[in-house]
Amino acid sequence: MGKVIVVTSGKGGVGKTTSTAALGAALAQGGDKVVVVDFDVGLRNLDLVMGAERRVVYDLVNVIQGEAKLTQALIRDKRVETLYLLPASQTRDKDNLTPEGVEKVIAALKNAFDWVICDSPAGIERGATLAMRHADVAIVVTNPEVSSVRDSDRIIGLLDSKTLKAENGERMEKHLLLTRYDAARAERGDMLKVDDVLEILSIPLLGIIPESTDVLRASNVGAPVTLADNRCAPALAYFEAVRRLKGENLPVTIPGDKRSFLGKIFGRKAA
């Protein structure tokens, strides 16, 4: 029986889709069977980040409406054999996502995969609550910035009340993934400190993903960052996050203490 993870945030544009792709790929690169599921109906992007946008045959809504079988909608990654994508619908309304339909799909995926990773849309509406509904584990993606932290707090509240786990009186396992962490800004003292965010949200830290052009490059070429360049800083951070997700007790390193030679010379001038 696989584990269902929701990657969620409340606030938009913080790195949910990037993280879903990277964590999913990293798990699959380690040999696990993984499916990443796009819940952002109407504004799908996970297909683009995964580089599968030209190969979408059917989507989540087709499966829920009975127009296609789940196996026909799954797209296998061309680079990693055990990695699959279930795309969202681009053209249909998100009202087509029924709670019963989502439940059936998730149950079937759980049977076939080790990990089912659900990429939540931004916001706290239907799409977001359906994405988190069946989760065993939640990854709360947060940027070290006031409005993102506030929205994460809101989402944590929903995870503790609106999910099946919560309704059954169980505790939802929650992890904080701090993304777009800018070491230079942290050094200047213009960014919320990791400890501050942890203290405010008080959920355990899964990892810190540095702000990096490697992420942009990866999405340009249509590859999860862990596949595009498995030695770049954000990829290494995602690989470590996956080890923690699997239960390893690995200390988190805060990026940026090792500034580069060029950074030392030019870094201070940059505003």
Binding site: L48, G51, E53, R54, Q90, L216, R217, A218, N220, V221
Partner: peptide, 16 residues
């Protein structure tokens, strides 16, 4: 990587 992004978007958007 930007040329790859441009080419992918052109194809995708033409279809969409």
């Amino acid at each position: 990587s930007a040329p790859a992004a441009r080419e992918r978007l052109q194809v995708l958007l033409a279809h969409e």
